[in-house]
Amino acid sequence: MSHIPAKSSRPLGSGKSPGIPAEPYERLQRTIDAVTYGIPSELRVLMVAEYLGEATQFEARKLSTRPAWLRTILRNRGGALVSKLLKDNWEHTGNSAAVREMFGIPPSSLHRFKDEGAVIAYRLDESGDFLFPLEQFIPNGIEDWAQVVVDAVGNGAPALHFLYTKRTSLDGRSFAEALREDGGTRDVLVKSLLKAAQRLAAE
């Protein structure tokens, strides 16, 4: 008699696995015994294991063809990534009060710019403050590239990701990091940023 490969020392089908009744195991065991009757015992476990592997892959493939399910997974991963990027760049973001204090832009103007898509803004949750990456501000104004980024990828999480993801072309830095560091080559960097955003938006 062959046995399904056990993952623990407890015999399968003993009825003691938490939450899994014994009966399906017993039925599966009887089915396997019937199907593998006449097959040399040393091959049975291997064949069953291979069959179960294929069956699992088939189910996984079926599952992966459900767009809503896959989309949710990808969005959840994206949400986690943006949270991490935000955490890594936290000290270079500010709310509207901080932006007013550092750059002299009144909150009412800032929110109008946000509504017009002229400034990159991210809201942590429905009721929370908007956060603004500080690299996009100049005294009393906003860099022109911010609107190009928003137009190209969309505001919020995608704009934040565009700014904060590290890039091979920048020697492993993000656009935000490079903008903070490269005072002397800022024009070249902004050109590169604009090119990257416009390439994504091109028809």
Binding site: G78, T165, K166, T168, A196, L200
Partner: peptide
């Protein structure tokens, strides 16, 4: 269409905008 930008991104933080 999108390989150029995705290739430029760090492997651990690759993402694409839903809007795009």
């Amino acid at each position: 269409r999108f390989g150029e930008d995705l290739r430029d991104q760090d492997l651990t933080t690759r993402a694409i905008s839903e809007r795009i």
